Simulated assay, not measured.
Amino acid sequence: MEVEAASGGTGEIRWSKLGTSLPVANVQALVASAGELTADQIERYVQPDIDAHAVLSEQSGEVPVIDLSNLLSSESVDAEVAKLRFACAEWGFFQVVNHGIPDDVITGIKHDIQKFFQLPLEVKNAYAQRPGDLQGYGQAFVVSDDQKLDWSDLLALFAQPTQGRDMSYWPSQPHTFRNSVEDYSMELMKLAQTLNVFIAKTLDVAPELLADKHVAQFLRMSYYPPCTSMPEKVLGFSPHSDGSFLTILLEINSVQGLQIRRSGAWIPVKPRHDALLVNVGDLLEILSNGKYKSIEHRVTINAHKERLSISAFHVPNYGGIISPILGTIEEKMLYKAVGVEEYARLYFANKLEGKKALDYAKLSGI
């Protein structure tokens, strides 16, 4: 499938204009050129609160696993829906196996993301973020010149709907990159649609109520270089919840680094080669009236190995409204209705800081 190299249209391209990030040094290039980094070079990346909560490594890998084939089977659907309800309510994360995305699509996107980040810096910089745009090659959530920085580089692309794409940000190297992203993006849209049907079932609401909650898709391809100097003091991504409805993550090279916050501690998530990792976003927490929680997560850094991943953030219509769905008349409403655009602007206007953005949607007294 050929992807046109034209500039995107208007309309949904506004999604990428909801924020911006200040330009900062390229971490991959810093690591490659500096050898053993000095304290001065790494100072802006050192996170003083990194050890504020314990890491429970012995609980690694306990994230619930949902088998999509069981959801699609009349004989096993009820039991699997119960598991999905538990995963969303108690963990906010789950791994999806038998997700139906063809192996060649997964292999293609993994190969091309690795190849892109291996390109010379001057080639990658041809797709650098521009002022006032979230897309492109660079970093994210850098809003001041003195904040601590994450130990990572990224490439962000608006992928769906197709009329919202700005192809000037889509790399032409490697030559298969655009087609790989197109194929993977389309498969994820189908998966998100299927998951939304069953999430609606877990909430005992009509699927139509969730049908428009995944119409836009933003992709973030992340590269986390190793840090030999003091890996225990830097983070690839600071603690945060996602401002999406649903996020779907693919580990590119199975290097562990993702940690989720549960019961006041960090739990490492062990990469699973046959699964995609899905997590509840802030907008689903609002819609479920807090029954499902968007969970804080962060990315730690390996001392010797690079880590790569691709996250797909699925969000509702730009002009939509997210309102809590109440299960009973007596149920207390915990969140106000919020505009998707206004929440996105708030989310992207600040540095990552846990679940602070969600405070905006909470009703007073909560």
Rank of each mutant, 00 (worst) to 15 (best):
D104K: 09
S263M: 08
G320C: 01
F158N: 02
V299H: 00
Y343W: 02
G92V: 03
G243V: 09
F86R: 12
T10I: 13
E251F: 08
I301G: 01
Y347W: 01
N302H: 15
I267K: 05
E251A: 14
I329K: 12
N125Y: 08
M333A: 15
W91V: 03
A79H: 03
V255N: 00
K291M: 12
F177R: 02
S364N: 07
R307H: 02
D153V: 06
A52C: 07
F141R: 11
L121P: 04
A211P: 05
D359G: 06
G132W: 10
D359A: 14
I301T: 14
L235S: 11
P239S: 00
A156G: 12
A216K: 07
F198N: 06
A206K: 13
R130V: 13
L119Y: 11
S254C: 08
D40H: 10
A265S: 15
E4S: 13
G290E: 01
S74N: 12
Q147G: 10
N70S: 12
E330M: 06
A344Y: 00
M189G: 11
K110V: 02
A32I: 03
V269R: 04
T328R: 13
S241W: 05
S168K: 15
D104G: 00
A6V: 13
E296S: 09
G354F: 05
A29W: 07
E122F: 00
H304E: 14
A39F: 05
R220G: 10
A312H: 06
A303G: 11
A126C: 11
P271V: 02
M221Y: 00
T162I: 06
S144Q: 02
T228E: 15
T20A: 07
K213C: 03
E208F: 03
A140V: 12
L195T: 11
L276P: 06
V278W: 05
Q139K: 15
A5Y: 09
I248Y: 04
V197A: 08
E75G: 09
L71P: 01
D282Y: 03
V299L: 03
L276Y: 08
S144I: 05
F94P: 05
A357I: 02
S60G: 15
Y224N: 00
P226Q: 01
D49N: 12
K356C: 02
E232A: 12
V3P: 00
N70E: 08
T300K: 10
H53T: 09
D112Y: 01
P48D: 05
F313N: 12
L121G: 03
N26R: 10
S254Q: 14
V31C: 10
S152A: 14
S73D: 15
D104Y: 07
Y184F: 15
L68N: 10
F348I: 07
R220T: 13
V27Q: 09
Y343I: 09
H304P: 01
P231W: 06
D103A: 15
S152L: 10
D150C: 12
G319R: 11
V77K: 13
N317D: 15
G19Y: 10
L308S: 01
D133G: 08
E341V: 04
K201Q: 12
P174L: 08
L149S: 05
P120W: 00
T107V: 09
